[in-house]
Simulated assay, not measured.
Amino acid sequence: MKLLYKIVFAVLTLLVVLYYSSFYVLPSITIVNSSAVGVDQAEIDLPASHLDFGSIASGSGNALHHSLTQPKDGVYRYTIKFTDAVETHGSCGYVTDNEFNKRVVIFIKSDHQVSCEQR
Score class of each variant (00 low, 15 high):
residue 5 Y to W: 08
residue 5 Y to C: 03
residue 7 I to V: 15
residue 11 V to H: 03
residue 12 L to C: 12
residue 13 T to Y: 07
residue 16 V to S: 12
residue 19 Y to R: 12
residue 19 Y to S: 09
residue 20 Y to N: 15
residue 23 F to R: 01
residue 27 P to K: 10
residue 29 I to N: 02
residue 30 T to V: 03
residue 30 T to S: 11
residue 30 T to D: 01
residue 30 T to M: 05
residue 31 I to E: 04
residue 31 I to N: 00
residue 31 I to G: 01
residue 33 N to K: 06
residue 35 S to W: 06
residue 35 S to A: 11
residue 36 A to H: 10
residue 36 A to Q: 10
residue 39 V to M: 05
residue 40 D to G: 10
residue 42 A to T: 08
residue 43 E to N: 14
residue 45 D to W: 13
residue 46 L to E: 04
residue 48 A to E: 00
residue 51 L to Q: 13
residue 52 D to S: 15
residue 52 D to W: 09
residue 52 D to N: 15
residue 53 F to P: 01
residue 53 F to D: 03
residue 54 G to V: 01
residue 55 S to P: 12
residue 58 S to C: 05
residue 58 S to D: 08
residue 64 L to F: 05
residue 64 L to V: 06
residue 68 L to K: 03
residue 71 P to G: 12
residue 72 K to L: 12
residue 73 D to C: 01
residue 76 Y to V: 05
residue 77 R to F: 02
residue 77 R to H: 10
residue 79 T to E: 13
residue 79 T to D: 11
residue 80 I to M: 08
residue 81 K to F: 10
residue 81 K to P: 11
residue 81 K to G: 13
residue 84 D to K: 08
residue 89 H to K: 14
residue 89 H to C: 05
residue 91 S to N: 10
residue 95 V to Y: 07
residue 96 T to F: 10
residue 98 N to M: 14
residue 100 F to G: 04
residue 102 K to I: 11
residue 104 V to E: 01
residue 104 V to D: 04
residue 105 V to D: 02
residue 106 I to H: 00
residue 107 F to K: 02
residue 107 F to L: 00
residue 108 I to R: 02
residue 110 S to A: 14
residue 111 D to W: 04
residue 111 D to F: 06
residue 113 Q to W: 00
residue 115 S to W: 02
residue 118 Q to F: 00
residue 118 Q to I: 09
residue 118 Q to W: 04
residue 119 R to M: 03
